[in-house]
């Protein structure tokens, strides 16, 4: 609550109630669109869903301030993920200082219909996992953001990369994933 009031005092005067309401509506709409993808992305950075919810709130309060101040709005999805990424990393670093270790374990389950299919799927997933784990952190983040449906310019904004760097990161990673698939099929 304290942080809310701190922000409240620093909100620059917004012209009218109308524009304030329209900013609120816009923030709510983006919240509905991006909360779940953002929570999943932050989970991939090691944040639990409940910690993620706190960070998401902070991100959208910052988005409100950003919009209310009339700042650039041409890549808001990228903006939201950039702020989310930075806050999640800070949060995670604080957690690690307090209680080192505690990596989120990724478990693999399979609900496929029959046992043979399960075994085949699990084997495929293990191969994919080993490739994914061998990627650089940055390449993994690009891939996860692509999986969450972001466009390349949004990924570029989120991770502070150039458009070309995003394209080459994704094609490098998927090229590796495709090669393993081929080798084992």
């Amino acid at each position: 609550m304290e942080s809310v009031w701190r922000i409240a005092r620093s909100v620059p005067g917004v012209a009218s109630t109308d524009s304030r309401l329209s900013v609120e509506r816009e923030v709510s709409a983006l919240f509905a669109e991006l909360r779940a993808p953002l929570l999943r992305y932050m989970h991939s950075l090691g944040l639990s869903v409940s910690d993620g919810e706190d960070v998401v709130q902070e991100v959208f309060l910052q988005l409100f301030r950003h919009l209310a101040a009339g700042k650039p709005r041409d890549n808001l999805r990228g903006w939201v993920f950039r702020v989310g990424h930075n806050l999640a990393r800070k949060h995670r670093q604080r957690q690690l200082r307090q209680a080192p270790g505690g990596v989120v374990e990724l478990e693999m389950t399979d609900e496929a219909s029959n046992p043979e299919e399960q075994i085949r799927n699990l084997a495929l997933q293990r191969r994919l996992m080993s490739v994914v784990q061998a990627l650089s952190e940055r390449d993994r983040q690009c891939l996860v953001l692509r999986a969450e449906g972001l466009r390349y310019r949004e990924i570029a904004e989120a991770l502070g990369m150039s458009l070309g760097a995003v394209a080459s990161s994704l094609s490098r990673s998927l090229g590796k994933l495709a090669i393993t698939g081929e080798r084992y099929e």
């Binding site: 919240f31 999943r40 399979d110």
Partner: peptide, 26 residues
């Protein structure tokens, strides 16, 4: 990615919390 992803709780509590915070903020 979907298999590794956590279950996301329904949005209504989070959305109400944001609305309340925005209201206080404005």
């Amino acid at each position: 990615h979907r298999r590794k992803a956590p279950a996301i709780p329904p949005a209504e509590a989070a959305s109400a919390r944001l609305k309340a915070a925005l209201a206080e903020l404005t």
